[in-house]
Design a protein around this nucleic acid. Structure first.
Lengths: 343, 343
DNA sequence: ATTATTTCTTTACGCGCGTAAAGTTTATAC
DNA sequence: GTATAAACTTTACGCGCGTAAAGAAATAAT
């Protein structure tokens, strides 16, 4: 990599002794040129250090090699983690990931999509906000850009959906909790930001009825994405009132559970399985922090890596098919029980 | 916003009755055209729904309106939160934030910078990995692109640095801990990923000596960015061995403290200020989760918003000056003591 | 060696926009 | 009302690359 600064492909062609159209072919797909010329180009490349102008490349392309990734909330380690996994897969497939967070804001979500549109992406992986999303505009976007939804769905929008099987996973942990102690009450938000919450509530009710128990819902007020705070506030109320008919709480997600555990601790209530414990708490998602709560949180894991990989693969399939698919494909991954100290 | 799809600015010019060069001026700066024509354009804009092609715009510009934001680890809520704040400021200044995470990987960090280079950004806000960063290549990047470092510095690289005043903040909490109980031991990583860690260690030693106490370092082995895990592992060892000559632990950062608290809980040691407590633990950063630990974590807050705002403003100043500054400006924000339950 | 095939070079045009130059219209000043 | 400045229109070129077409060169097949 010498000092020489190279302005454009023309100049690099002159210096490397390869015609510009051939270079252009090479940069679009190195395997599309003869092995011998490829070597010559690569040799020249580390002598002269040239990289094609990104804007000029994409100007004429109808579609770029960009893949948009949109998640509802980047400061939530769950999404940060899944985004990280997806990024890696996108890169591995020779595409450029562009990561955007919606900050829990529907308008930001739409703006992210509109900004992505300007990038002429080959496709988009979208984890929508859910209930608060602007459904129509998301649908319109999916019409124009190949889009795979993950984590949460918005109606039947998008070419495909990859998520977790809430019925299975909630059933799993309800079974476990009932088998090992009192049947759980279900702790959730009254107006949850995420559509998975609805499915989880229904799955909870179904599982409880299957086991001949009466479902009991605890619904926290509050909105937004400060789940821990909501879990803490409502959790404090719950343990103070002592109106519960059970000592076991199943939280709709781990972040609520983290807040709940904190509230229980502050109230001097010992949570867990020990003899001195008076309460059990379980969560859902296997959030990165759930192994460091006090006590450590029993939960159902979502397979981040599997969801990431399947999402990326599905999008690639849609892009390669390039005609809008005749059917909308749904992939739901089963959860796995993660037994820790809290239940 | 009618159906009509518009191909390019030429076409929009014809439909709106405004010449293309004037439109070009408008899109680059709406206030640069007469108010009356501006209204005509805006009226046409929501009749026809046209947006200039991003790639064509940027092709001829030497610099774009892009601002790169690079953080070492997006799955760390601290960085996610600060990135979120910075993004908002960048947008408010009429620029386009491009957020990239380095996943704790120095090569990824360099690749992020190289990718940013292709975007011809007006400037970059970089929170470097620190010790493991490729200093030379970061320095080379800063030579070409106006860059402001934040959170952690790399030598004296970059046009400016915005961070926190570790000497003040560590001094603050050491003072507090000594005033209210036994002087703290300092819990940190032996080979910390972050250069702030070194400054904090030195600040701790200095503060202890100032108060005529003997510094005591507890250094956890392990590398990477799984701080909670390292804090948990080493914390378990510390509370098991009982070699400590003090009941008070000051952790180099909140994530270590979170792991430590979890270890203490598992070991049945009560942490906090109550009569039944045998240990105090404090952290540093006011991490988003530190208010939900058990007990809640006493710490020193970094002013996320102030750091974000100052970083963005400083970068703008550097960009507007457009000549490399004659001096490197450092801004250090003081920490604020956040008293919670753990110490 | 001859033919067929692949890969390359040469030449040329277009993408959508920035932007400069020269001339024309509109607003502001007197 | 005229003079002057500001803002606009018209015209034209360039940016760096994708890509098509035609011919030359290198490789593979016979």
């Amino acid at each position: 990599m010498a000092a020489k600064k190279i302005k454009n492909m023309e100049e690099f062609a002159a210096l490397s002794g390869i015609s510009r159209p051939t270079l252009s072919k090479f940069f679009n797909d190195p395997s599309s040129v003869r092995a011998s010329t490829r070597q010559r180009i690569e040799a020249a490349l580390d002598r002269y250090d040239y990289r094609p102008n990104l804007y000029a490349i994409n100007q004429n392309r109808r579609l770029t090699k960009n893949i948009g990734i949109v998640v509802p909330y980047l400061a939530d380690p769950f999404f940060a983690e899944i985004a990280r996994n997806i990024e890696a897969h996108i890169l591995g497939m020779g595409y450029r990931p562009v990561l955007l967070g919606s900050h829990g804001n529907p308008e930001q979500e739409i703006e992210n999509l509109e900004n992505l549109r300007l990038l002429k992406p080959a496709g988009v992986l979208l984890a929508p906000l859910g209930r608060t999303s602007d459904h129509d505009r998301i649908a319109a976007f999916c019409q124009d850009v190949p889009t795979v939804l993950f984590d949460a769905s918005v109606g039947t929008v998008g070419e495909a959906f990859v998520g977790s099987n809430n019925e299975q996973s909630i059933g799993l942990i309800v079974d476990y909790l009932c088998r090992t102690g009192e049947p759980p009450a279900f702790f959730e938000m009254k107006t949850p930001a995420n559509p998975n919450a609805h499915k989880r509530r229904q799955a909870y009710i179904k599982a409880m009825e299957r086991l001949n128990h009466t479902p009991q819902l605890i619904q926290a007020s509050g909105s937004g994405w400060e789940f821990e705070q909501i879990g803490f506030r409502e959790g404090s109320r719950v343990v103070r009132d002592r109106k519960l008919t059970t000592n076991t709480i199943l939280c709709s997600n781990d972040r609520l559970a983290i807040g709940f555990l904190s509230a229980a601790y502050e109230a001097g209530i010992r949570v867990g399985l020990g003899d001195d414990c008076t309460m059990r708490v379980a969560g859902h998602d296997d959030h990165p922090f759930s192994r460091y709560t006090c006590p450590t949180l029993t939960t159902v894991s979502q397979d981040y890596e599997a969801i990431a990989q399947k999402s990326a693969e599905t999008l690639m399939a849609v892009i390669d098919a390039d005609s809008p698919a005749d059917s909308r494909h749904e992939t739901l991954f089963d959860g796995r029980l993660v037994m820790r100290g809290s239940a």
